[in-house]
Amino acid sequence: MLSLEKLTKTYRTGDQALKAVDLEIPEGQVVALIGPSGAGKSTLIRCINRLVEPTSGKVWLGDIEISSLGATALRQQRRRMGMIFQEYALVERLTVMENVLSGRLGYVGFWKSFLRRYPQSDIDEAFRLLDRVGLLEMADKRADELSGGQRQRVGICRALIQNPALLLVDEPTASLDPKTSRQIMRLICELCAERGLAAIINIHDVALAQMFVQRVIGLQFGEIKFDGPPDGLVPEVLTQIYGEEDWQATIRKVEEEEEAVE
């Protein structure tokens, strides 16, 4: 469904963030992207919807090649890719409802969106999504009145109302406490399963990634160092991705926690 061919990004400073990355993600698969800071995780997902322009290489979404599209066609394809951000990136001075509806911006014209005249179907869908994530009462609150976990749920609604085929998720739990982190990860993965969405989730918490996803990709210095099921992340692999460290505790903790959760 999504495939990357020799995707390369070199920043103007000369930093090579991505070195000819090849990747294939089938329909409905949830993938975790792990790696140390500066490995190019964030650049990789931003190159897919071209918030960052790739230097070379191709991005295929279905049978459409994204990286050569013009501005209008790119906007249409961006509608098929929902994005969830690290610090939620909600427009803080707008209400929760406006934030959710902003996910439909690619579908409605400028004046309709400016006057907040969204089609009734969009409004119904927004309420359904807010109900699904348990924030129906918050609809008319301003986004900056919400807690971190609540904001991220709004962010999820905004991505889903686009009716995407693919979710790009950038460090969804980086600014949340451990319990909320898990709830958010679980919610994202459940929603992906319900709707048959594929997702790429950037995440630095290896244990959390192992708990929820079917496939893990390890990135280091812009190259894929690991690609396989979560239980393939043995200490040797983690050392290869992150460098020397005692990994046993990390992995064991996960297994124990999983038992505890079940």
Partner: peptide
């Protein structure tokens, strides 16, 4: 579908002034 939700569905929405 929760009761609270059914109150909202099909109704127009306006930004609070």
């Amino acid at each position: 579908m929760s009761d609270a939700l059914s109150l909202h569905l099909g109704k127009p929405w306006k930004k609070p002034p």
